[in-house]
């Protein structure tokens, strides 16, 4: 197997004194989709947010262990969090476009990176929207408000906005949980295409979704990583009883 893109070593995470993640270790590989599954409150979203240091924004949290991305520990003192987040994009559970035009939403990231050339920006916006499979739906109304789009379109716009920064890794926190089945299948199709170019990590409540889109699956339960392996194996022949109980729907 190829070299891991992200190496997580003994990561524990605390909200105040409450332990939310207990010594989690796993490797995530490039150009694959890795799914995190588990019941609500199992720590999978918390874990996802440690990967781009979004949890830094919450007061009174503590993290121990190492997260090494491309041979660099992202919790090292010298790490510039702003640059880290440019490399690791994130798509949230609830679509959160800015109250700006479709164009401005996608151009936001490049602009804060100092790109102001109109032609370059237009190109980035077009490429990103095409990659997010929403270009055909919005190309005639790029300068209309993004808030006028449907929920599914907004989520794909948010994906386009993330792609515009040209990240290497994309974190998705239940990106389709608020969407209807048609929009969900569009997002899944999109994830399938995007893994050619990006390393994708997706948190999901939807077991079928994890089975459909991912190569690797990690099952979390109450802050512990119970089982991690090839999605096929996890879903057909899990090693641990807890995993089997969860995926067969006996709890959670």
């Amino acid at each position: 197997m190829k070299e891991a893109k992200i190496k997580i070593r003994n990561v524990s995470f605390y909200y105040g004194t409450k332990l939310a993640l207990n010594t989690v270790s796993l490797d995530i590989y490039a150009n694959q989709v890795t799914a995190f599954i588990g019941p609500s409150g199992c720590g999978k979203s918390t874990f996802l947010r440690t990967l781009n240091r979004m949890n830094d924004l919450i007061p009174n949290v503590k993290i121990t262990g190492e997260i090494i991305i491309d041979d660099v520990n992202i919790y090292d003192r010298q790490i510039d969090v702003v640059n880290l987040r440019k490399k690791i994009g994130m798509v949230f559970q609830k679509s959160n476009p800015f109250a700006k035009s479709i164009y401005e939403n996608v151009a936001y990231g490049p602009k804060i990176n100092g790109i102001h050339n109109k032609k370059v920006l237009e190109e980035i916006v077009e490429t990103s929207l095409k990659r997010a499979a929403i270009w055909d739906e919005v190309k005639d109304r790029l300068h209309d408000s993004a808030l006028g789009l449907s929920g599914g379109q907004q989520q794909r716009l948010c994906i386009a906005r993330t792609l515009a920064v040209n990240p290497e890794i994309i974190l998705m926190d239940e990106p389709a949980s608020a969407l209807d089945p048609i929009s969900t299948s569009k997002i899944e199709e999109l994830i399938f295409q995007l893994k050619e170019l990006y390393t994708i990590i997706i948190v999901t409540h939807n077991m079928q979704q994890a089975a459909r889109v991912s190569e690797m699956t990690a099952f979390f339960y109450i802050g512990e990583l119970i089982e991690y392996g090839k999605t096929k194996k996890i879903f057909t022949n899990p090693e641990k009883k807890q995993t089997e109980d969860y995926i067969t729907g006996r709890f959670g």
Binding site: R85, K86, M90, F92, A99, G109, I112, N113, T162
Partner: peptide, 17 residues
Amino acid sequence: PGSLREASLALGATKWQ
């Protein structure tokens, strides 16, 4: 909404941006 702040920060914007 806090979600918009998160979106901006996740895109690599600084706090002031």
